[in-house]
């Protein structure tokens, strides 16, 4: 009898242990819980756009001024106007300009500044809007706020997505060759291997001026 009681108690203990060792949860709930602690690149990018990038657009340097400075004193121009989160030759500038829309191409548009007849056309990317130019150009993102590199990459990705979907389409729909256009955008330049003939602007603000 005593032995039987022992077995029953042992069985109850085993069942209790087994019951408490296994539990079921909905996968969607677990995923949602995991996501709450995650970095939300889309909302970071939206806040960055509204509270830092837009108020900072007045710091953009005029494109012809920048070109002249780069040609006369490259070091000084990079020091005064460029930013980058990382180390290396690749640096970013926020520039602005206005001029006549001289061509509308599949992947870009070109603008000729009216102020200077000798100025080369400025190429504005409308298709290949990728990279870190917009994130880094103003130097407003602090690397120390990010321990995960992928979060930083995703911020660029979200900013570029916003440009591809919100800045470029209304411009391309409205713009015609010969229109007067104003732009503010970010460019990437290589300090060591500077090529001023390859400049491509990632637009942040791009508008046809109604006269």
């Amino acid at each position: 009898m005593k032995k039987r009681l022992k077995y029953i108690i042992a069985a109850v203990v085993v069942v209790l242990l087994a019951y408490n060792s296994v539990y079921f949860e909905k996968l969607s709930e677990v995923k949602a819980e995991a996501a709450t602690g995650k970095f939300d690149a889309a909302s970071y990018a939206a806040t960055f756009w509204d509270t830092k990038l837009m108020p900072g657009l007045n710091q953009a340097v005029e494109v012809n001024d920048l070109m002249a400075q780069l040609q006369s004193d490259k070091e000084a121009a990079f020091k005064a106007h460029s930013n980058a989160l990382g180390i290396g030759n690749i640096r970013y500038f926020l520039i602005k300009g206005e001029g006549e829309l001289s061509s509308i191409n599949e992947n870009d548009v070109t603008i000729l500044a009216m102020a200077d007849g000798e100025q080369k056309p400025v190429k504005i990317a409308t298709e290949f809007v990728y990279g870190n130019a917009v994130r880094d150009a103003l130097g407003l993102v602090d690397l120390n706020d990010f321990s995960n590199t992928m979060d930083l990459n995703n911020v660029s990705e979200e900013l570029n997505r916003k440009i591809r979907t919100e800045v470029v389409p209304p411009f391309r729909a409205a713009a015609k060759k010969g229109d007067k256009v104003t732009f503010i955008g970010a460019i990437e330049l290589n300090k060591e291997h500077l090529r001023l003939d390859e400049i491509e602007v990632i637009p942040v603000a791009l508008e046809v001026v109604k006269e």
Partner: peptide
């Protein structure tokens, strides 16, 4: 914590 070095 992580310092990126640009790739060209």
């Amino acid at each position: 914590q992580k310092m990126p070095v640009a790739v060209e």
